[in-house]
Design a protein around this nucleic acid. Sequence first.
DNA 1: GGAAGTACCTACAATTTTGTTAGTATACCG
DNA 2: CGGTATACTAACAAAATTGTAGGTACTTCC
Lengths: 124, 124
Amino acid sequence: MKDYPAPPPGAAPNVLHPLCPSRQVLGMLTSRWGALILVALAGRTLRFSQVRRELGDVSERMLAQTLQGLEAHGMVRRVAHDVVPPHVDYSLTEIGEEAAALVRGLARWVEGRMPEIMGSRIPK
Amino acid sequence: MKDYPAPPPGAAPNVLHPLCPSRQVLGMLTSRWGALILVALAGRTLRFSQVRRELGDVSERMLAQTLQGLEAHGMVRRVAHDVVPPHVDYSLTEIGEEAAALVRGLARWVEGRMPEIMGSRIPK
DNA sequence: GGAAGTACCTACAATTTTGTTAGTATACCG
DNA sequence: CGGTATACTAACAAAATTGTAGGTACTTCC
């Protein structure tokens, strides 16, 4: 797992290529908390601690980190009102909403197919 | 962050609920290798080592493990021809293909939006 | 004959991810 | 006054993920 041919400069993005940046982006969107944050934030604005309560069990650390990652990639918009105690609003950008729609679609599909999935599951 | 109210027996699956099984399933489909395996296997049959080469940098260990997880949840079909040297074919089941279509959609979207994403990215 | 390919598994080790705790400045509630 | 809430960060610890090396049983290619 050392070196792979770097993708040629003008090559089309391909998630199957180990070194393609698109793979990292996909990784972000499908990461444990990334995906859930997108689902929770789709179509609405929430404060930091509201997002936290929505997901139920993210630690503050992970939430902050993941939100920063999404923000750095233009998916999340962060608006900090400079007051004490702090008040920060999070919402999705346009591309963020697009990504969220897809992730949500997947999440909803899973929720809808749970009976079949659990039914055909092979218990270990 | 210890205990959460267990989801009521008849409750509808909800990925935002920490203890809902649908969250685990979503986790599988969006896991590092899970998502890529679905993309690679969509619409075709590949042997173990072919899948490995498609992804480029999975270790055998992770590939085997992830394939088993997907198989256990009815997403992947494993057909072992009893010969030496070993020959095993992997393909997606019907629900597997459904899931793959969604994951693929996300992957393709990411690939297509890479210019915008990288453009609005905030380098650290 | 020796090397490589096949589809794994099993220890063991390294790496990455995630969690925990504490701290900050201030306001509001009882 | 004491406790709670807010949105984080830093330091440290624990846990989960991932990689590495070696073995298997036999075949084909050089």
